[in-house]
Design a protein around this nucleic acid. Structure first.
Lengths: 207, 207
DNA sequence: CTTTGCATTAGCAATTTTGTCAAACAAATT
DNA sequence: AATTTGTTTGACAAAATTGCTAATGCAAAG
């Protein structure tokens, strides 16, 4: 069995599909472009991965899993609430920096396709529910103690997500080359942004 | 000249195009769907508006103008800085509630098309530049006075935009019917959200 | 060294989507 | 009423995109 040949083609197509789908979305992606990027004849694409829809699903499911795991916050350490929030913000920020295209990709594709919307709900509704009830309890105590102001867990979570996601957005939108690794100077810039976001959110929930 | 016939068809197509392009984007939109929604034979679409690309441009340009005008903040009233920020947040929030699909639409289409990216930059870079230098001066004073903490105008603006845009996002993503007017209960909900956002941002920049 | 099984090639078929056009039509003007 | 002007119809052409397949190649197993 010529195993390595298959591996390289099948995987190359998957990698190319990920690249193209994440930047252009399902509707904007062309299977020919994916094949070309993978360096294979476009027949191979269907041979290994069936229809465009099926290929897309493989990419989408993978990204949904990634997002799902990323949601397993480091909120279970034995540190103060404020410290927990801080580390959650930082972890989330770092995740976004590693996966800058993910949020828009998921949002767009979920909005575009009712089935995926259902899928998305099923996967995240319970997860978010759990996090919220967990936070609910803990935040009630903190509010009584006076360490934070009166704010709902949902609002807090949304604020964190929004501030982090949007601070990276301008650079995704405006950058020419889609996949480049940050150099030292840029990393320092992002460190600063991250610190600012922590600062902003913590003050935002201060009593 | 049979003016009313033309007016209704030409405009109906434009309206339908707006609806479809804003929900599905350029790549996901179908000219046949637009024509159908407008209630005309699809030949009419090309007769009045040329190619799909040209029709799209009409919609896109209109929305860009809308966004541009919305950027003319109410930051020139003779009130305290904090009050200005508050009213800016509220105005921005209200604008988003009126045009919930606009941000994602612009972001996606600007990212997808290099020419539109250039167009976008040209239109907004100077505008934002002006706002920033204006804020720069004013905020410096406020920071010295001790009414707000040390934060850059760019960060503040981004925070406002992010918190507002993202608080509406979940409802856009999850809603089934795309264009519905808010009922009384929902309006109260949004009022609350808006107040929370004001609270969050103002505390976030507090000294 | 032949067979077997999968991978690859290259072209073609099917479908979808966009764009065009000539003919029919309707209203206003002369 | 005839002409003019612009609109609508309905079909069709062209292009783009996806999906299929028969022939070919290649490497491992028997």
């Amino acid at each position: 069995m010529p195993k390595d040949r298959k591996d390289t083609s099948e995987q190359a197509i998957l990698d190319a599909a990920e690249e193209v789908f994440l930047t252009k979305g399902f509707a904007g992606a062309r299977t020919t472009e994916i094949a070309k990027l993978a360096g294979v004849y476009h027949g191979m694409l269907h041979y290994y991965h069936g229809t465009k829809e099926e290929l897309f699903s493989k990419v989408f499911d993978k990204k949904l899993q990634l997002l799902n795991h990323a949601f397993s916050f480091a909120l279970e350490q034995n540190i103060s609430f404020i410290e927990k929030i801080k580390s959650a913000i930082e972890a989330h920020f770092d995740f976004l920096l590693e996966n800058p295209k993910l949020p828009l990709f998921i949002i767009n594709e979920v909005m575009a396709n009712p089935e995926r919307k259902i899928m998305f709900k099923k996967l995240f509704a319970p997860k978010i529910g759990k996090i919220l009830t967990m936070l609910e309890k803990e935040m009630k105590e903190e509010i009584e103690k006076g360490t934070i102001r009166n704010i709902s867990p949902a609002d807090l979570l949304l604020h964190i997500g929004s501030v982090n996601a949007t601070s990276i957005l301008p650079h995704i939108i405006m950058s020419e080359n889609s996949n480049h690794k940050w150099n030292k100077k840029e990393l320092a810039f992002w460190q600063q942004k991250r610190a600012e976001n922590v600062e902003f959110v913590l003050r935002g929930i201060s009593p």
